[in-house]
Amino acid sequence: MRVGVPIFLFLAAAGFHTALTASLESAEKEDTFGEEVGLEQLSNLQKRDQEEFEAAQMSEAVQDENTEEENDTLEEGMNRDGNVEADQHESESDEDVDCMRQKREHLEANVEEADETTNLAEVE
């Protein structure tokens, strides 16, 4: 009996040590996996933010172009004929503004479609 107790204690300590080591290795693997998944998600978020930023820049550039075109159109309208009645000038300006507005809406729709396409591509 005296010989059995130390052997039992030794086997119990060895088993406890093995179980503790396996548990620590498992926890370490889970931490590493969590970090890899976190980095992948962060990368996807950065890509999405970059695409949204580029789309906003494109939209802003389109608006700047439309503003410049409106200004050029208005200047041309004023320089064409100084004797044109005010009503005719206003109706031409309204038509130009409507035309520019339609162009802007069309370009914005194209930018939104590009964004949706990009988002769908990311999801897949």
Score class of each variant (00 low, 15 high):
76 E>D: 10
99 C>Q: 13
103 K>P: 02
85 E>G: 11
118 T>C: 05
63 Q>T: 08
79 N>R: 14
80 R>N: 06
114 A>G: 04
84 V>F: 06
100 M>A: 15
58 M>N: 11
77 G>E: 14
78 M>P: 11
98 D>I: 06
92 E>R: 07
71 N>T: 12
103 K>S: 00
86 A>T: 09
99 C>S: 13
62 V>H: 09
82 G>N: 13
65 E>A: 04
106 H>K: 09
67 T>Q: 11
72 D>Q: 13
64 D>K: 15
89 H>G: 11
101 R>Y: 06
101 R>T: 14
79 N>F: 10
89 H>F: 15
100 M>T: 10
71 N>L: 13
93 S>G: 08
54 E>H: 03
73 T>C: 13
72 D>C: 02
63 Q>Y: 10
91 S>E: 08
56 A>M: 01
102 Q>V: 07
87 D>R: 01
101 R>N: 11
85 E>S: 09
84 V>L: 08
77 G>T: 15
92 E>I: 02
68 E>S: 09
113 E>H: 02
79 N>Y: 07
94 D>L: 14
60 E>C: 01
113 E>A: 11
100 M>R: 10
73 T>S: 15
118 T>N: 11
71 N>Y: 03
97 V>E: 04
55 A>I: 00
95 E>C: 05
85 E>W: 02
105 E>M: 06
62 V>L: 06
97 V>I: 10
60 E>F: 04
102 Q>A: 12
97 V>L: 09
89 H>N: 11
92 E>G: 03
64 D>Y: 05
119 N>E: 15
103 K>N: 03
73 T>V: 08
88 Q>R: 07
59 S>V: 00
91 S>Y: 01
89 H>S: 13
55 A>D: 00
61 A>E: 14
74 L>I: 09
88 Q>K: 08
111 V>A: 00
75 E>S: 06
110 N>C: 09
112 E>G: 00
62 V>I: 07
100 M>W: 04
98 D>G: 10
77 G>D: 12
101 R>Q: 12
117 T>I: 09
81 D>K: 01
64 D>R: 14
82 G>R: 14
85 E>R: 03
92 E>H: 00
61 A>W: 05
109 A>R: 12
66 N>P: 09
107 L>K: 12
56 A>T: 06
72 D>S: 09
64 D>Q: 12
63 Q>N: 08
92 E>C: 02
108 E>D: 11
105 E>C: 02
90 E>M: 14
106 H>Y: 04
116 E>N: 08
87 D>M: 03
112 E>D: 02
65 E>D: 10
79 N>D: 12
106 H>W: 03
97 V>Q: 04
97 V>S: 01
74 L>Q: 05
113 E>W: 00
107 L>M: 08
116 E>I: 11
88 Q>F: 01
55 A>K: 02
66 N>E: 12
79 N>T: 11
64 D>M: 05
62 V>D: 09
